[in-house]
């Protein structure tokens, strides 16, 4: 089966270099052929009532972390905010 590796890479926000491309395409084809062995069962996928989750109440808990703690791993912080490239002209 043919898959458009460049398109999938773009959707995945990944760049595949020209050097790696042939190897990657070949590997991905093999993997897709493997998953293609799955038969089509053609039924409807209803919600599984045996596996119902209990969600906690959506109440904000404050005081667990400081802003500094939450930002300690950020690549770039300025004036207490995360820095990202300009997105709006």
């Amino acid at each position: 089966m043919d898959i458009d590796i460049r398109h999938i890479a773009k959707l995945s926000r990944l760049k595949i270099s020209d050097d790696e491309f042939a190897k990657f395409e070949n590997e991905m084809k093999g993997i897709v052929d493997m998953v293609n062995t799955l038969p089509q069962l053609g039924e409807d996928l209803a919600i599984d009532e045996n596996n119902v989750m209990q969600l906690r109440q959506d109440i904000a808990e404050t005081g667990k972390f400081t802003r500094d703690e939450l930002f300690q791993n950020a690549p770039q912080v300025k004036a207490g905010c995360l820095v990202v490239p300009k997105t709006v002209e």
């Binding site: 590796i5 999938i8 995945s12 990944l14 595949i16 790696e20 590997e27 991905m28 993997i31």
Partner: peptide, 14 residues
């Protein structure tokens, strides 16, 4: 990301 992680992300996206 390393190669295996990229393969899985791409398979998942596909």
């Amino acid at each position: 990301f390393g190669s295996e992680v990229k393969r899985r992300i791409m398979l998942g996206t596909f």
